[in-house]
Nucleic acid binder design. Structure first.
Lengths: 168, 168
DNA sequence: GTCGATGCAAATTGTTTGCATCCTA
DNA sequence: TAGGATGCAAACAATTTGCATCGAC
């Protein structure tokens, strides 16, 4: 199978990054494949991405890669601790590099995702631990709310609005 | 259609609760139906419940009610402000009465859901607002982490464990 | 009687599984 | 060349939509 288009010598995708993945895989008796590298590259390039989005990115380079492989590879990379997933709302989980640790603020109106430093949650983490014995993972689930722009939009709407949203 | 089994007179389910729903519906030109009352009752009885769970509960009384109707009714009741939904992990949203406002702590290991008062998040809400212009809805998305029991389990496991989880 | 609500079937979307083939080590 | 990885098709689960029928007002 011709997986990727030919590239000039010396321009390996993310030259050097694959060495660690290869090592991590081999340590566990697993195999390095072009697909696995491409999925990892895609996750790194995209920041946060759903399996679907990762698949599109991978297929831009290697159209034959199947979405099934993307799902399996994301699961694997997560078990290896190379990537992690977070729930940024609605349903679709998004994958990012494991080091990518932020608190996510997702606007439930427009979907925009903002990031805040994890230590923003340290006070809550402490209370959760003290009062509930609960060890918080502040980065796994996004906080939901309304972004500044959408608050303005809502304010503007409520002026004109005569509470007739339901019919339809 | 025979919607519900016959019941002794005077034992209406949640006698009296439907009056407000009926009124709310009529205000908007919408109609009161037994299905709508049953869905609302189910949400109230169950605390948090997925559409699937609401459907089962409703069907225990009225087997002919279709899950499509449950979805549509939950959406409607949410628009009316009678119920709200929250994301308690993985994918399935759960519905509860609108007044039900807690911060949810979900264990990603065993799925257990704990509840904490909303004011637990007030410090974060303020920071989100000040630093990001973001209006936080602390109750919409659950916080993810590890519950006390599962922390003990993990500690116990890591003693025996020799890091060989990946191979399949 | 009118038009909103329901039930049913089918379409959609997101994800998983079985299995034959392929290819890394 | 042995067994892990992939691709493909099909199974699944959760949710939505089209449409004819039903029933609240």
């Amino acid at each position: 199978m011709l997986l990727v288009a030919r590239v000039p010598p010396g321009t390996a995708y993310h030259a050097g990054v694959d060495s660690s993945l290869k090592g991590t895989l081999h340590q566990r008796g697993l195999r390095m494949t072009p697909q696995r590298q491409l999925v990892l590259d895609a996750v790194r390039d995209l920041g946060h991405a759903t399996p679907e989005q990762v698949c599109s990115q991978v297929q831009a380079i290697a159209p034959a890669v199947n979405i099934t492989t993307v799902y399996r590879t994301l699961d694997l990379l997560e078990q290896l601790g190379v990537v992690r997933h977070a729930h940024l709302g609605h349903g679709a989980p998004t994958y990012s590099e494991h080091q990518h640790r932020h608190v996510h603020l997702v606007c439930h109106r427009c979907g925009r995702v903002d990031e805040a430093p994890v230590d923003m949650m340290s006070a809550i983490a402490e209370r959760a631990s003290d009062e509930h014995g609960f060890r918080l993972d502040a980065t796994h689930v996004a906080l939901s709310g309304t972004c500044a722009d959408c608050q303005r939009t809502e304010d503007a709407e409520s002026e004109t609005d005569t509470a007739e949203e339901v019919r339809g």
